[in-house]
Design a protein around this nucleic acid. Structure first.
Length: 493
DNA sequence: AAAAAAC
């Protein structure tokens, strides 16, 4: 039985905002989490992607804050009382916008801070006083150190995409931030994926938490059709275009594993005449926000992206996700394909599997609890149309192919030898600093790569695999031996 | 193996 927002006894300004946004029925995670957050309990919440986790924590949070809301205009009367942390800038932006809408009719103020943007406007907004601060970790630490924000009155902390926030790359920053907060506080963790190790770690940050799991965690929406195709690297772009055509895909997220690969694929597709934009961490923040906006507005068909776009981004009606590269972590697979099939819609999730990907596919199978069948893919014969690539994207024709184009002549015809006019529809592509830079050999010319060392078996998986920079060690020690862990440490055994 | 997050 689905419950309605109107049954929640939310304050009138919140009810009104929700109604204006057109929400009526509660999703399962909302129905379960909202009452618990309203009680002020700590929560660890796991629910499938695209089921409204943001509303599940924001609405009850705002309701709690409203109990002592201050209508005075004095900044001192508006300390930061709730902190929402996210792993990417775009996600922080999105969640902040959503919270602003929910809080629209209340006196509560919110702000968002993330990197890649001017400090000044952020400082200005913080100075006026905000109850709810949405942030990415790095920039928040900047503000803390610049003393442009004070967090000693924080009552609520939300870690959205919590498993990512607790992973090794974020943990040191996260712990430093948490060290500035009052010990007495409510902590809320939400994600679609929680590995057992992260779950244990997460528990050490929570006090007597209520654990909410709607459906089995780590699962994908049943409305998303997942297929895996055997495709070798050199055929990936052809395969992508063929599948787009075959399934009449209007719009899609196209995920790759590296920033360079992202820039390259985007440019190649652009040269093929497709409406494409790229989103990755080496772009300026301005470019990142513009790329996302163009995709949202439907001005481009494809968003070629790295895992910066894997989590949380809520864009309505994107019918397909392509994993041109299989993600390194099975968790990221679940998040990536969660960009489609949102709010009960249907979606396609197509992944390209090369010979190297067997292990990753096995891990995905294990995580989603389903056998994966890798299908062969019939590729259109594009040999005649596929030019060899010159060093600056110039189209050159292999002599064999040129002959095939013009079989009446023994030698390539004058037309085949002449430089081809670029087809009218192929747009001039913008310069990309990631691609258009002087060639830099990765090793000095006199240094030979040490293949033997490179081929040595990987270090056994465990904490040691993660320990690199010294500054992370302190954080890792806590990771290894969380304060609330039961039982005695192994060392004493 | 990569990406993300601060200048």
């Amino acid at each position: 039985m689905t419950q309605a927002f109107s049954e929640l006894n939310l304050a009138e300004p919140l009810q009104r905002a929700v109604a204006e946004m057109g929400y009526t029925a509660l999703t399962p995670i909302q129905a379960q989490a909202i009452p618990v957050v309203l009680q002020g309990r700590d929560v660890m919440g796991a629910a499938q992607t695209g089921t409204g986790k943001t509303a599940a924590f924001s609405l009850p949070l705002l309701q709690r804050l409203l109990r002592h809301a201050n209508t005075s205009t004095s900044p001192a009367r508006h300390p930061v009382r709730a902190l929402v942390l996210l792993p990417t800038r775009e996600l922080a932006d999105q969640v902040a916008q959503q919270i602003k809408l929910y809080a629209k009719h209340t006196p509560l103020r919110s702000a968002v801070v993330f990197g890649g943007m001017d400090m000044k406007p952020q400082v200005e907004e913080l100075r006026k006083g905000v109850e709810i601060l949405v942030a990415t970790p790095g920039r928040l630490l900047d503000h803390i150190e610049a003393k442009t924000v004070v967090l000693n009155q924080v009552e609520y902390v939300v870690l959205d995409e919590a498993d990512r926030m607790l992973d090794i790359g974020f943990l040191p920053d996260l712990q430093r931030i948490l060290s500035y907060l009052p010990k007495q506080r409510t902590t809320l963790l939400f994600s679609a994926t929680f590995s057992p190790e992260i779950k244990r770690l997460a528990a050490s940050y929570l006090q007597d938490p209520v654990v909410i799991e709607v459906a089995r965690p780590n699962t994908t929406a049943s409305t998303v059709e997942q297929r895996f195709f055997r495709v070798e690297d050199e055929d990936k772009r052809t395969a992508l275009k063929a599948l787009l055509r075959e399934h009449g895909v209007q719009q899609a997220f196209v995920f790759v594993n590296s920033k360079l690969g992202c820039a390259r694929l985007a440019r190649a597709l652009e040269r093929d005449g497709l409406a494409v934009t790229a989103l990755h961490g080496d772009k300026s923040q301005d470019e990142r926000l513009k790329a996302l906006e163009a995709f949202k507005q439907g001005q481009v068909q494809l968003l070629v992206c790295t895992d910066v776009a894997a989590r949380g981004l809520d864009i309505k009606d994107v019918p397909a996700v392509f994993n041109v590269d299989i993600p390194f972590n099975a968790e990221d697979y679940v998040h990536r394909i969660g960009r489609t099939g949102r709010a009960g819609a249907s979606g396609l999730a197509f992944s390209f599997v090369t010979g190297r990907d067997a292990r990753q596919v096995a891990e995905i199978e294990k995580l989603i609890g389903r056998k994966v069948e890798v299908e062969p893919l019939e590729l259109p014969d594009e040999r005649r149309a596929r030019p060899a690539r010159g060093n600056d994207g110039q189209r050159l024709w292999r002599s064999g192919e040129a002959a095939a184009v013009d079989p009446a002549h023994d030698a390539p015809s004058a037309a085949a030898r002449a430089p081809r006019a670029r087809p009218a529809r192929a747009p001039a592509v913008a310069a990309d600093p990631l691609l258009d830079r002087p060639y830099q050999p990765s090793l000095p010319p006199d240094v030979k790569p040490d293949w033997e060392a490179a081929a040595k078996p990987a270090a056994p998986k465990g904490l040691s695999a993660y320990i690199r920079p010294k500054r992370k060690v302190a954080a890792l020690l806590r990771f290894a031996d969380p304060p609330s862990a039961e039982g005695s440490p192994k060392a004493s055994a």
